[in-house]
């Protein structure tokens, strides 16, 4: 460097410093997410494992127990696991067809003007804070179910499913629409040229070609449903039973944590962290599935 003329050297130096600094800045920013992830996972797993490692509770009893009575040291989360699974599956049964058909409509069928109106609406739906979904559910869906089905209580599995189905729509629609749009035009032209109708083309050619993207959309939708807390807490009723019908009230994993964390301390609090571990495992499995799907898609 010293061999270069002074001015040139300075200009270069400045450039190098700037370059070096910005790459460090980017690196630092990238590290923040990794560090946050490690801290959160580490903390949840540390606190959640305490009752089993230190206090001698059985993890199997924790997973399979049907009684959750913290004041009597009974910690069983089977009803909540079942509740989370039922609610998610139910939401999928409604949300997937509606979301997929919306995506197909937007990508394949809708005239540009109509799509221009619906697409932003779907995206806005994603931006609504989840507690507002809950308030909507509590004020509209719960009384509606109560009156129409003549139930003693509207807080039920069905109410949760309806709210979650609406909430997962934007995720499914956006991801699936992108996947469908990515299918090359030649596929459609080929199919239509062979005499297939538009609907036949969509279901026999386009959707199968976009399969991995559609699957990814569904998995992301599941992730949204299983992790949702605020909306669910208001419409679920939070009863500690294993739901056996659509009209039973239920307490999914997320609401158990949110509902009781405020008052919990000692092993009760740690057990809520352990509930978090179970929830986190669900999400991890989902992410693993998602990674598999997208790897398949790239092949």
């Amino acid at each position: 460097m010293s061999a270069l003329p002074e001015k040139m050297g300075n200009a270069n130096k400045k450039k190098y410093i700037l370059e070096g600094l910005s790459s460090k800045l980017f690196q630092f920013c990238a590290l923040i997410s990794v560090i946050s992830l490690l801290l959160i996972v580490g903390f949840v797993f540390y606190k959640g494992s305490l009752p089993f490692v230190v206090d001698g509770y059985s993890f199997i009893d924790f997973l399979t127990g049907v009684d959750w009575v913290p004041s009597e040291e009974k910690f069983g989360i089977l009803p909540m696991i079942v509740a989370s699974v039922y609610a998610t599956i139910g939401a999928l049964i409604i949300g997937v067809p509606v979301g997929l058909f919306t995506a197909i409509f937007l990508a394949e069928i809708a005239p540009k003007r109509v799509a221009k109106f619906i697409s932003p609406a779907v995206q806005l739906l994603a931006g609504i804070p989840s507690v507002l979904y809950g308030v909507f559910g509590l004020a509209i869906i719960v009384p509606f179910l109560q009156n129409v089905l003549n139930l003693p209580r509207g807080q039920s599995l069905l109410a949760v499913i309806l709210v979650l189905a609406i909430m997962m729509l934007p995720t499914i629609v956006t991801v699936a629409e992108t996947a469908i749009r990515a299918v090359p035009k030649t596929y459609r032209e080929g199919s239509l040229a062979l005499g297939a109708s538009q609907i036949e083309t969509i279901f026999k050619v386009v959707v199968p070609a976009a399969k991995s993207g559609v699957m990814a959309a569904i998995v992301l939708g599941v992730g949204r449903a299983i992790g949702e807390t605020m909306a669910v807490i208001l419409v679920a009723g939070n009863s500690l039973i294993i739901p056996t019908s659509l009209t039973d009230s239920l307490r999914p994993l997320t609401t158990n944590i949110a509902l009781e964390m405020g008052y919990a301390f000692g092993s009760h609090q740690n057990m809520l962290f352990a509930t978090g571990i179970v929830l986190f495992s669900f999400i991890l499995i989902l992410n693993f599935v998602l990674a598999k799907i997208s790897a398949k898609g790239e092949k």
């Binding site: 009684d67 004041s71 009597e72 009974k74 209580r153 807490i233 009723g237 039973i241 039973d248 009230s249």
Partner: peptide, 25 residues
């Protein structure tokens, strides 16, 4: 005791929440 509370009881957090739930049902 907490263990004796009827299982399908709706659990609401906070006085206000209980009031709203009861007022609606």
């Amino acid at each position: 005791s907490s263990g004796e509370l009827i299982r399908n009881a709706i659990i609401a957090s906070g006085n206000g929440n209980i009031k709203t739930t009861v007022a609606m049902n």
